[in-house]
Simulated assay, not measured.
Amino acid sequence: MQEGYEFIQNRVKQYGADLFEARILGQKAVCITGEEAVKVFYDPELFQRNGAAPKRIQKSLFGVNAIQTKDGAVHQSRKRLFMSLLSPVGVMELGQLARKRFKEASESWERMERVILFDESAEVLCRVACEWAGVPLKDEEARERANDFNAMVDAFGAVGPRHWKGRRARERSEVWITEVIEKVRNGELMAREGSALSEWAAYLDPDGESLDAKMAAIELINILRPIVAISTFIAYSALAIHDHPECRNKLAAHGEQYREWFVQEVRRFYPFGPFLGARARKDFTWKNYHFTEGQLVLLDIYGTNHDYRLWEFPKDFLPERFRDWDGNLYSFIPQGGGDPARGHRCPGEGVTVEVMKVAVDFLVNEIQYEVPEEQDLSYSLVRMPSRPESGFIITNVRKR
């Protein structure tokens, strides 16, 4: 809690090792970092997710007994549905909706004295997510729903008021989406065929049983919430454009290719997920350390993305580093590692990249704005999750 994103890296440097023991939340844990650690962590023969996520995180971020806590056939079955919904076609549809909704939002932004980009982007993305998923959303409740989705994320590394705010937000969201699922199932609401709402309402687990309405709602929220959470990456993207004006010029001049490099560097450089947890499935030895069955293990996300052995000048913001990136699924892990189709890596990573590219193109080529000096553009490496303190405020917004 005192060191945040750098907790694991601080000790890796101190001990000169990619592995060390620590006590986390009153229990012994092993912290690991680096590319080889990622490969081991995502080996389903060695690690499982069941029992790794504390109940306090399930009750705020993931939802109790959600896919992030599952292994084996149940995990694979639910993951296939996530992957099918978030296919290239689904990603393209989400990107098109995001482009449309950001353009619509710019009309109201022109009339606003100041725009807090994090908040406004969250509302835009909440509308996008619900429209794409087939979930009815009233205009007047979009901001409240967006705030609730982001409150769940904000509760991840929090204790006290922030944590309880996230728990209350999850409770409200689960009541809302459970009611929607029930209306689809009893015929009161027609869900668009093939939509996320339709698919989760009709989903059967490997045992042939329907999920209860609340569990189906939890998994549907696990699609909606991460889309809204892209607002954090959008705020970071705006910060990167502001701090690196040479990038703005390249984004305007070089188009799609440079935009891809840019958003990937935003995901690598700025703090988002600090670490991931799993438990050893069996006894085994790695790097001369004996892991015991059930042992808690934390994989260092932030440190691996800033590992000098994997990234030249890791503390510098350099989009061009992705010019020759080989697509390694174990060295670049902003949303987890390994193959998303077979393991626990986030299936929505393509959505994140596409929506970020749409937002960056919008900020650079669709609108003009000013960035007032009277705001706090810093971000903390202790607060988890982190984002620009001011939410990135822009003023005098106008279309190009």
Rank of each mutant, 00 (worst) to 15 (best):
P245D: 13
L220S: 04
F313E: 12
L381Q: 06
E131N: 00
S60E: 06
P88H: 14
F332K: 02
G303C: 03
S108A: 10
A359K: 03
L298A: 04
F317V: 05
S77Y: 04
A341I: 00
R342H: 14
D43N: 14
E188P: 01
P226K: 07
M92F: 09
E193N: 08
E140L: 07
A359N: 08
I393G: 02
R80A: 10
V74W: 01
Q76C: 02
H242I: 08
K138C: 13
T232D: 02
Y15I: 07
P136K: 08
R192S: 11
E199R: 15
W176I: 08
A253F: 08
D316A: 10
A235C: 06
K13W: 01
S198L: 06
Q58G: 09
A169M: 06
V124M: 03
G294K: 03
I301F: 05
Q48P: 12
Y330T: 11
A129C: 05
E131D: 09
Q375C: 14
D154C: 14
E113W: 10
Q48E: 15
A122Y: 02
I241M: 14
G90W: 08
M190Q: 15
V89R: 09
S386M: 08
D307N: 15
S386R: 05
A98M: 02
Y369G: 12
M1F: 13
E312Y: 15
A122P: 04
I24H: 09
S195M: 07
Q27R: 15
I8A: 07
N305M: 10
E123M: 09
V64L: 13
L61M: 08
F62N: 05
I393M: 14
D307M: 06
T304Y: 03
E120F: 01
E3H: 10
L97G: 05
W200C: 06
A52G: 07
K165S: 12
P388I: 06
S87M: 13
L25Q: 15
D207I: 05
A98F: 03
I333V: 15
V228K: 07
K138E: 15
A201F: 02
N147R: 13
A53R: 01
E188K: 00
S390L: 13
Y308V: 08
E209S: 13
A202E: 09
G348L: 01
C126E: 03
R400D: 14
K100I: 13
E349M: 08
R101Q: 00
D71M: 03
V128K: 03
G90N: 04
G51P: 07
E93S: 09
V153R: 02
G134L: 01
A253R: 11
Q96C: 09
I116G: 00
N150D: 01
L251D: 04
F233H: 06
V12K: 00
A196K: 04
T395C: 11
Y203E: 10
Y270G: 06
P206K: 12
P347L: 11
I230Q: 07
V30W: 01
D324L: 07
R11I: 09
A98C: 14
